[in-house]
Amino acid sequence: MAEHEEHAEHGQSHYVRIWGILLVLLTVSILGPVLAPHIEEAAAGVGAAFVKGWMITLLTAFGIAIYKAYLVAANFMHLNIEKRYISYLLATFLTLMVLFFAGTSPDVMKHKGQNWENVAAEAEVDRALKSQESDSHGGEHN
């Protein structure tokens, strides 16, 4: 470093440290699905059978993504020292997307409900699953 300002040093090392944490988290999230079955086995071994592989994957994939996003937003975008209402503003926009999901998913995510049925979507799911099954029986490796 050309200029050895104390403050600058401190700031830069802080950013590098955050970056290091992010990389560790990235590694964990890639290894998550690989290790999940082993963890499930090990957990069952010590009597924690409620721990399932998909839980591990979900946690390593999305739990870590949320934490990574928080680290970047707080430290790199400096939301931690920005005025509070900016955070509230962005949170509001995010909440609207949760609202959108909540209002839309009953119709789009599900194919059947009270007095209604999405016949076309069910047929497509059936068709695709059958063709995948016959493919894998046909010995095609994926």
């Binding site: 209002g103 839309t104 076309a120």
Partner: peptide, 17 residues
Amino acid sequence: DPNRGGDPILWQHLFWF
């Protein structure tokens, strides 16, 4: 297109949201 795994209702939600 529901025959290809899509959903026309989704557009209506996107539009009216």
